[in-house]
Amino acid sequence: MVSGGGGADDDAGPTVPELVGESELGLALLLPGPAGTRVRWAHTTELVDPSAYLRGGELVCTVGQSLVDGVACASFAAAVAGAGAAGVCFGTGDVHPEVPGALVAACTDLGLALLEAGPGTPFMAVTEHLAALRVRSAVADGRAGQLLELLTDGALAPEALLPALVDAGLGRGQLRASAWPTSTVRELAAAVAGAPHLMATEGEVVLLVTADDLDLTAVAAALDVPWGTATPSPWRELGAGLRRARAELAAAAAVRADGEAGAVRGRATLAALVAAQPPEVLTPFVDALLRPLLDADRRRDAGLVDTLRAFLAADGSLVAVARAQYLHVNSVRHRLTRIRELTGTDPTTLDGAAAFSVALLATQRRP
């Protein structure tokens, strides 16, 4: 017998029954696994042996594309259990009409928890639920500022940050994002101490979120430092606002260091070009290239947009993407092929990469 959930952070996350008990997820418990097993995170895979990409405590989600016979089912269950995962969540309806009996038998023999996600339950819903629990934990532990870094880097959905915003007194209203040099962190913290805010240090930049009625102009003047800010925006667009504020800080710092020539160099980028375009120019890129991928991700947590973003950031290195996303290189190739099939545009070509880059930047653009 192999006990699930034996990896890192055993005390983190809900137990398997607690996760199944969340009615909005629509999960069915087929096998409970060891008592007290906790789900740290969710990992979607179609590999027969995903153990190299597991750290322990994951709920391993699959639609069973590779589980074509009893041998494959047994190998998959053994690999998942051997990696210390919390259990398996099998999605029915896409490939298999029901959970394969061989997989049920293998999980039973190994003492591995087994859940079923019906056709109406995307794996993304499970991931988002676990992310929300992590956010609440971070807020309770005083680590809400770390969430701003994840949101700015595109690694956190805005919905996951909402509990932290509410707890900070910012609620669902219009928010202002700003970016400051780290040398100002103490003075800045003192200046906003009496107002609702979230603040985080990311490298050489302090990220700050405040209500839109808090005037920071006087603070910047008193500190006499370059700073960047975005116009107030809804909480759902906070990630884009933080990225814009960070870019404006870089431009302001360049002006102070090199004069207007430095600012010109800072704005001679694809991001600056996209930011200058009217919505009617950018909308076709988003509709034709991103919307099909977002729809696929929403239906079954396909990970297409995340892989596309990582592929472009890695300058087309499949190995770098696989390493960053804990995927096999063949899985990266499969996702890129699926992106081409859904959009008719190949991200591995120069023109395709440029078009997808414009589409992604357009979603970060301020209206």
Score class of each variant (00 low, 15 high):
Pro367Gln: 11
Arg134Pro: 00
Val60Ala: 11
Leu361Ser: 06
Ala79Ser: 13
Ser233Cys: 11
Val2Glu: 10
Val205Met: 00
Val281Pro: 01
His328Met: 03
Ala160Asn: 07
Asp153Val: 03
Leu170Lys: 03
Val88Trp: 03
Ala240Cys: 04
Gly303Thr: 11
Cys61Tyr: 14
Asp153Cys: 06
Ala288Arg: 15
Leu208Asn: 01
Arg340Asp: 04
Ala354Arg: 14
Glu22Gly: 01
Ala193Ser: 11
Leu29Gln: 15
Arg298Ile: 00
Gly239Trp: 09
Asp346Lys: 06
Pro347Arg: 01
Gly101Met: 12
Pro278Tyr: 08
Leu110Trp: 06
Gly118Trp: 05
Ala354Phe: 12
Pro32Gln: 04
Thr121Arg: 15
Ser183Ala: 15
Thr92Tyr: 00
Thr108Tyr: 01
Gly13Ala: 05
Leu342Trp: 10
Arg365Asn: 10
Ala245Met: 04
Val274Glu: 05
Val319Glu: 15
Leu47Glu: 09
Asp258Trp: 12
His129Gln: 10
Gly5Trp: 00
Ala257Ile: 09
Ala77Lys: 12
Val281Ile: 13
Asp258Arg: 14
Trp41His: 14
Pro284Asn: 07
Asp315Glu: 14
Ala42Cys: 10
Ser66Asn: 09
Ala113Met: 10
Ala353His: 00
Gly203Phe: 00
Ala102Val: 03
Ala251Pro: 00
Val281Tyr: 09
Ala322Pro: 10
Glu341Leu: 14
Ala221Tyr: 09
Arg366Thr: 15
Val225Lys: 10
Val305Gly: 01
Glu237Tyr: 00
Thr127Val: 14
Leu308Met: 07
Thr121Asn: 08
Leu249Glu: 02
Leu242Tyr: 07
Gly26Pro: 07
Leu360Arg: 04
Pro50Gln: 04
Val319Asn: 12
Val80Cys: 12
Thr269Phe: 09
Gly91Glu: 12
Leu242Pro: 03
Trp227Tyr: 13
His197Gln: 05
Gly7Lys: 02
Phe123Leu: 07
Ala314Arg: 02
Leu289Gly: 10
Ala81Arg: 07
Glu280Gln: 15
Ala253Ser: 14
Ala245Gly: 08
Gln325Tyr: 04
Arg244Asp: 13
Asp212Pro: 09
Asp212Glu: 15
Ala52Asp: 14
Pro97Val: 12
Val166Lys: 12
Ala83Tyr: 07
Ala177Trp: 01
Ala271Arg: 13
Arg55Cys: 12
Asp153Ile: 02
Gly344His: 13
Ala138Ser: 13
Leu29Tyr: 08
Thr307Met: 03
Val192His: 06
Arg338Asn: 04
Arg335Asn: 04
Ala310Trp: 08
Leu304Ile: 09
Val329Cys: 03
Gly241His: 06
Trp180Phe: 08
Leu188Phe: 02
Ala12Leu: 14
Met124His: 11
Glu248Cys: 04
Leu19Thr: 00
Glu24Leu: 13
Phe76Lys: 02
Ala132His: 02
Arg299Phe: 03
Leu290Gln: 04
Pro50Glu: 04
Trp227Asn: 02
Glu204Met: 08
Thr229Val: 15
Leu282Asp: 03
Cys73Val: 06
Val206Phe: 06
Leu162Val: 12
Phe76Ser: 05
Val358Ile: 15
Leu214His: 08
Arg323Gln: 13
Val255Arg: 13
Pro34Trp: 10
Pro292Gly: 05
Leu336Asn: 01
Leu208Gly: 02
Gln65Cys: 00
Arg267Gly: 07
Thr152Asn: 04
Asp306Trp: 01
Ala322Trp: 03
Gly169Thr: 02
Thr283Asn: 08
Leu361Ala: 09
Thr210Asn: 06
Pro163Ser: 09
Arg300Ser: 13
Pro32Thr: 06
